[in-house]
Nucleic acid binder design. Structure first.
Lengths: 339, 339
DNA sequence: CCTAGTATAGAAAACGTTTAAGTAAAAGTC
DNA sequence: GACTTTTACTTAAACGTTTTCTATACTAGG
């Protein structure tokens, strides 16, 4: 690796001058500056980020903590899209992305926070995680710039998908399609679920739709087996629903299978709706009607706000940024108005 | 951040002693060592990775270059699983994962190699990419430890999914199910495609199956629209195939839609097979018969070999590691033997 | 022509580690 | 007891930057 030393020798100046020239300080003459820059380019110079980090305490590196229950979160459709968008925005601003090591074994295991300090991340983004994990709490409570995704925390910037309005939009759409017997298989008890669930009930009430208790059941997110089972239970009811909502698109596939296994057709005999708007849902039949979450915007806003917080800690608003979604109309919800 | 300096003061020893104690050098007394370690722990010490990197030229950080044509590769089902596995293995060995910035704009844009040198990655893994991109070639040709995934390069370690045997297995399975009129919609011209295609023809010949030219068509990977179109063309042939192979599972959804749009049933009227074995293919009906690539093993082997190459450059074999897959039997290929 | 001001560059310290070389005391050898 | 060896620790330099302070030369004002 060619260093500033090499350039300074080549140009017959001191390393300080080289540093200042490359960083465009104004106490270096225009011609020297140009000469140094030219030779730097010719010699293929690039700054050593470790040295820079050591000296300046800035790494231009952002730590990412994306943990799914099962895996690292990378294989999670929704979050991988959010992360992808986050990454693009961060990179455009000159930041790199490093995963916070979440392997729970290995010698010298560090906590998330320790790891973040060790690497000197300028900031951290957290998503898709058990927010009750003490290590996560420690990280969020730390003095590092933090942005959380889809979870609120005291005094931290959060970017959240608007589950309340999302559910309202979806419910209203289904209502407008003429459905009155609407069931909801919701995910396990998390903030996201609670928001959707309360919005589900609220919207139902507003629209004058009655929801029998047996229409509301719990199943894990992204679990087709459970969704299958709960769907069967719903179909077995004396008065089954005309439309079933699922925790997410992926889970809805389980429901669809259950329905088809019963010999029922979608949407002719029963309607279904997902949540998320993952890519594959648009490419299989029946094309799923679902609430598309704006992963692009969520990732972008998270990155933008985190970088802001890093670079302008004083003037950055600590806020909750709510990102709306939209109903993605597919072919899985029957319009009961037209006969 | 508490530094070695702080510990040295607290313990009344020199920083050198602290460093050696923590790194378990044997010229430090047992009791001092223990005392230093104890206070280090109490004070919440963690080494500054930038300083370590600067001094040792080792970052314990691996650069990842995963680029899909459209996005960053994160949203690519197959590669996100590979990456996830890679990450887990790397983390278990104490390495972190950082993306090589692939934003093509932004000021001070560095090439992939420049970026890798700048960050001081100990090694680099490359996948899912246009291997003709000059920047990629530059990176692969560099003196950095490199492992490529699904692409061969002179004198570099490569982990490749065995497309030749994979296609043979899949073809043979379909043959055994009694099919003789087998069509193949293959992906665009890449090494992967070439391997599969030649294996397709070779196996056909071995088994005495004749493949008319019009049974073989090209469509982009992961493109349901194109797959839809090509499938329609195949269905329109005077003598249509009884089974269609697709470039990948995702593309096969397009084919399935086309077939169902024609009012044909899968597998009763026509059979289809995918390639990859992505998760969702197991969760929708018709459950796809496909060749499952062992993403877990691919990622694991890539990480293992890269780390080996980093840590034991002399004794590491430069080799091509071929990972076999397996036919994942679904319900999309009809058994023509039983009537 | 003297002084003050300005423009340009250099010297040196510092960031937090690691490590080669050095030193002093204790222990072993005959 | 004089020697070497071993043990335990320290000194100091180094990694590649950034930055403060200092120095020199030139310009301008009077």
């Amino acid at each position: 690796m060619v260093s500033m030393k090499d350039i300074s020798v080549a140009c017959g100046v001191s390393v300080a001058t080289v540093s200042k020239a490359l960083n465009d300080h104004r106490d270096i003459g225009a011609k020297t500056k140009e000469r140094i820059r030219q030779t730097a380019k010719e010699m293929g110079y690039f700054p050593n980020s470790a040295a820079q980090a050591l000296k300046t305490n800035r790494t231009y590196n952002i730590g990412v903590l994306f943990v799914d229950k099962a895996m690292s979160g990378l294989t999670h459709d929704y979050f991988s899209y959010v992360l992808d968008s986050f990454k693009r925005t961060a990179e455009e601003h000159g930041y790199d992305i490093t995963f916070i090591n979440c392997s729970k074994n290995g010698k010298n295991r560090m906590s998330y926070l320790e790891h973040a300090k060790h690497r000197g991340f300028d900031g951290v983004v957290i998503a898709c995680i058990d927010f009750h994990d003490p290590e996560v709490v420690e990280l969020i409570r730390s003095d590092l710039p933090v942005v959380t995704i889809d979870h609120l925390f005291n005094n931290r910037i959060a970017v959240v998908s608007d589950n309340v309005s999302g559910m309202r939009q979806l419910f209203t759409y289904i209502y407008k399609m003429g459905h009155r017997k609407i069931a909801y298989i919701h995910g396990e008890d998390t903030a996201v679920t609670q928001n959707r669930l309360s919005s589900f009930y609220k919207t139902a009430k507003e629209l004058g739709v009655e929801i029998p208790d047996e229409y509301v059941r719990e199943a894990a997110y992204r679990d087709t087996k459970e969704a299958y089972k709960k769907t069967m239970e719903l179909l077995d009811l004396p008065d089954p629903p005309t439309c079933i909502l699922y925790p997410d698109d992926f889970a809805s596939f389980g429901g669809i299978n259950a329905i088809q296994a019963r010999g029922l057709r979608i949407p002719e005999d029963i309607s279904v709706a997902g949540y998320d708007g993952i890519r594959v849902a648009r490419h299989i039949e029946p094309k799923l009607t679902t609430l598309r979450q704006d992963t692009e915007l969520i990732g972008h806003e998270a990155a933008k706000n985190l970088i802001n917080l890093i670079e302008e800690p004083k003037s950055t608003l600590i806020q909750v940024i709510t990102i709306g979604g939209e109903v993605l109309e597919g072919h899985s919800v029957k319009d009961l108005n037209k006969k």
